[in-house]
């Protein structure tokens, strides 16, 4: 995958990297077990302070998005979530509400909106995920 960061954005660079890896994993661009660049290589490639890159990697490891093996590198983890079904529904509900708020203000009909969601869902690894 190719990372692209904008250092002049309000979103901190470490957060941009975490977000991009999450998106790439969700879309299947990054597969479980795949190696991601080392902190050093990514810092040189993006011309970004390696401490910032390291902060992104620490955050991703904490979130269970990646794992590192000493001497071998950093790898994409299986998508997993240990929260209860109810908790996961509650977390997603917030985003569903936000989506529907926008859709309503943009003047969408229910069927149009659901159609867009269905079409977009094909580009994500929803079905393969552990919570099917």
């Amino acid at each position: 995958m190719r990372f692209a960061v904008n250092p002049s954005s309000t979103e901190p660079v470490y957060a941009q990297i975490v977000r991009q890896v999450r998106e790439a994993v969700a879309r299947g661009v990054l597969r479980p077990g795949e190696r991601i660049p080392s902190v050093r290589d990514l810092a040189l490639q993006l011309v970004i302070n390696p401490n910032t890159i390291a902060a992104a990697y620490r955050e991703m490891e904490r979130a269970g998005l990646v794992y590192s093996q000493r001497g071998k590198g950093t790898f994409v983890a299986e998508i997993s979530n240990s929260s209860s079904a109810a908790e996961r529904r509650r977390l997603l509900q917030k985003h569903v509400d936000a989506l529907l708020t926008e859709a309503t203000h943009l003047g969408f009909r229910e069927e149009e909106c659901l159609e867009m969601v269905r079409a977009a869902a094909k580009r994500y690894r929803l079905r393969e995920s552990a919570h099917e």
Binding site: R40, V47, P50
Partner: peptide, 13 residues
Amino acid sequence: RRDFLESIVELIQ
């Protein structure tokens, strides 16, 4: 300038 920044990133490694 970009070259200089790359030197900095390399150095801090």
